[in-house]
Amino acid sequence: MTIGNLSPASIVSYTRSVSKLSIFHELSPRDMELDQVLDFLVYLKEEEGLQWRTLKLYVGGLRYYYQEIVGSIDLAGKIPYPKEKPSLPQIMSREELAQLFSGCLNLKHRVLFRLLYSSGLRRMELLNLKLRDIDTKDGKRRIRVNQGKGGKDRYTVLSERVLEELRIYFKQCRPKDYLFNGQRKGSPMSRGALRHALDSAVKRSGLKRVVTPHLLRHCFASHALEEGMNIKTLQYLLGHQSIQTTLIYLHVSEIPLSKAFSPLDRWEEDV
């Protein structure tokens, strides 16, 4: 399968979708009708019990295959996404985050997780960060995200406190090329190593909950809204294509009324 501007994780996911469809019907997907594709999706939901998010990945892979590879735009458009809505993210409190950071085994892991939370990066965006992506020129503090989800570049925020911690980390660890190296200098940290480091920090901290890299991204979004960040600004920082995705965080954020104001009071001050 020739796949264009997709992340490695998407390539694996999409390839798996097409492969399982072929195995299910013992037939090349190119020779299938829409009904056969729908039968496969019903099987995944009813027999394998796949949830909304996993089914969505399968549908995305199959739609991409039929539209971009086979060239059957009509068939691709008739493969429906599952109707269920995603559950709201379970946000960690600020106290729980502080507890997590205190459980980090070393400086590298502490800086890594604080950067993940404070910038709202996705897991692979963090692991793919290179030293040159930390932009502090001309008094700026920002992180360049190269080829994020959907192949788009963007910038996100760099915490002043985390920047100081990064400078200490750099002096002690001397990373090469990538901001967070794996076992070999110049190579990126692996997803498995990140997962192990986070699991260890959770265990050492005494937290009694599941913590994932993506949960830290959820926390960034929710807490940013609570502190008064504009929803459009947050959409850009998170790299969301649709504002509807960002609006989910309005339902889980505790935005205090003390931050509310009347626009009349604001503009009449200048009259």
Results as ranks from 00 to 15, higher is better:
21 L>K: 01
22 S>I: 04
23 I>H: 04
23 I>E: 12
27 L>M: 13
27 L>A: 12
39 D>Y: 01
40 F>W: 08
42 V>A: 14
43 Y>L: 09
45 K>T: 05
47 E>M: 10
56 K>E: 11
56 K>W: 03
57 L>Q: 07
58 Y>D: 07
59 V>T: 06
59 V>A: 05
60 G>K: 01
61 G>I: 05
64 Y>P: 14
64 Y>S: 10
66 Y>V: 02
67 Q>T: 03
70 V>Q: 13
72 S>Y: 09
76 A>V: 05
77 G>C: 11
79 I>W: 00
79 I>C: 03
80 P>A: 01
87 S>F: 04
89 P>S: 03
91 I>Q: 02
92 M>I: 00
92 M>N: 01
93 S>Q: 02
94 R>K: 14
95 E>C: 08
99 Q>C: 12
100 L>V: 04
105 L>Y: 08
111 V>N: 02
112 L>C: 10
113 F>Q: 04
115 L>E: 11
116 L>I: 04
116 L>F: 09
123 R>C: 13
124 M>E: 15
127 L>Y: 14
127 L>T: 15
129 L>E: 10
130 K>N: 13
130 K>P: 02
131 L>N: 13
134 I>S: 11
134 I>E: 12
136 T>W: 05
136 T>Q: 14
137 K>L: 14
139 G>R: 06
140 K>F: 08
144 R>N: 08
145 V>G: 05
145 V>M: 11
146 N>R: 15
146 N>L: 11
152 K>W: 03
154 R>D: 07
155 Y>K: 02
158 L>Y: 00
158 L>A: 00
159 S>E: 00
159 S>P: 02
160 E>R: 08
160 E>P: 03
